[in-house]
């Protein structure tokens, strides 16, 4: 098991020593390794999304008593690959009245920001690309940039549904960012660090979900809203806004938005696993299998909620954040602080 545990770290070290033997300076070798790591992340994300989309369609089918995709391959497993090829070969339609530059760059900005989130996620023991000193803060602040991309999409489309959808998305994401950050603060207070590896090490004995159950629930609700997923998918409520900010997009540009949503979903679930479920810690299996397993279990709960609960109204959504979630997270913070002070 020892070999399997450090497989990727050994591989990275091997690449670096090989590059240095070829006459590269250590700095250049490190940069080459970084590029390789980013390519790996992009590959992982793409493969992961192909599986995720198939899984979500299968699960929604199960919940609605249908079969879901079932034609291509066993259990329809190649359906997403066929869809991806279809999307790649579609014509790139740009409506004539759009704000061309903004319309074109919005999906790229969105996917780049989602990929940037993966820089700090520890996929295994010592397997984060950068174990930043303030990884959690990085995650929150880079995640907050996604609103700009949605706003660009909504504005650039020059379509009233797109603009309304973008405005809803941005209002929702800005409101729910506050409870999201506050619920993570409880964990940070117990761990005493913003570094992902420290937070995981602090959960050696007991997972933070048992010490901070309220924070986990508020984090989960806020993350659902932040991801614009059902039951909080007001920004793309099909019945009233066609597809929200994505109305005018088609082909690969639309697919990039779709990709980015699932990329964010995995990032947020991995973050929940790191903050509340002990990250890569687990028995028997190597650490780089435990984090995906935990993230997938959390994602299954996201799917389950989306396909079970009805959508809620926009004004209820906003007042729920400001009048319920934020006070609850604040009280949780005060209680956590008092308990930490008394039991220090």
């Amino acid at each position: 098991m020892r070999g399997a545990e450090t497989f990727f770290i050994d591989l990275a070290r091997l690449i670096v020593t090989w590059l240095e033997k070829q006459g590269m300076s250590p700095l250049v070798a490190d940069i080459v390794l970084l590029v390789i790591q980013f390519i790996c992340i992009a590959a992982i994300v793409t493969v992961n999304i192909i599986i995720l989309i198939w899984l979500e369609r299968k699960i929604s089918g199960f919940i609605q008593q249908r079969l879901g995709p079932n034609r291509l391959g066993p259990w329809g497993i190649f359906q997403t690959i066929a869809d991806a090829i279809k999307l790649l070969t579609k014509e790139d339609i740009i409506p004539s009245q759009t704000d061309k530059i903004i319309f074109r760059t919005a999906p790229i900005v969105f996917i780049v920001i989602s990929l940037m989130l993966y820089v700090v996620i520890p996929f295994g023991d010592g397997m984060a690309i950068v174990d930043l000193n303030m990884g959690v803060l990085y995650f929150i602040s880079v995640g907050s940039l996604g609103t700009i991309a949605l706003l660009m999409a909504g504005w650039g489309s020059n379509n009233k549904w797109s603009l309304l959808g973008a405005m809803r998305a941005v209002a929702q994401m800005i409101s729910y960012e506050i409870p999201l950050a506050f619920s993570l603060l409880g964990v940070i207070m117990i761990a005493g660090s913003l570094k992902m590896s420290d937070i995981i090490a602090a959960q050696n004995n007991v997972w933070f979900v048992f010490l901070q159950p309220v924070a986990f629930i508020t984090y989960f609700i806020a993350a659902t809203a932040e991801l614009n997923r059902g039951p909080f998918d007001m920004p793309e409520a099909e019945q009233e806004l066609t597809a929200g900010a994505y109305t005018e997009y088609s082909g690969m540009r639309w697919a990039l938005f779709f990709l980015a949503e699932y990329t964010n979903l995995f990032a947020v679930s991995a973050m929940a696993a790191v903050m509340f479920f002990g990250g890569w810690q687990g028995p028997w299996l190597p650490s780089w299998l435990w984090l995906p397993i935990k993230a997938y279990i959390i994602m299954l709960v996201f799917f389950w909620l989306k396909w079970t609960l009805p959508r809620i109204r926009m004004d209820h959504l906003m007042s729920f954040s400001w009048k319920v979630l934020i006070p609850v997270t604040l009280v949780n913070l005060v209680v956590t602080g008092c308990v930490l002070q008394f039991f220090k």
């Binding site: 930043l132 000193n133 303030m134 803060l137 990085y138 929150i140 602040s141 880079v142 907050s144 940039l145 609103t147 700009i148 706003l151 504005w155 603009l163 405005m167 941005v170 800005i174 960012e177």
Partner: peptide
């Protein structure tokens, strides 16, 4: 100054500029 950099992204690029764009729109 990594902390100030992250707060700059969180507060200015992520929130204040969005409010500016909102007001304009």
């Amino acid at each position: 100054a990594d902390f100030i950099g992250l707060v700059q992204i969180l507060a200015y690029a992520g929130a204040i500029s969005v409010l500016i764009i909102f007001a304009i729109m």
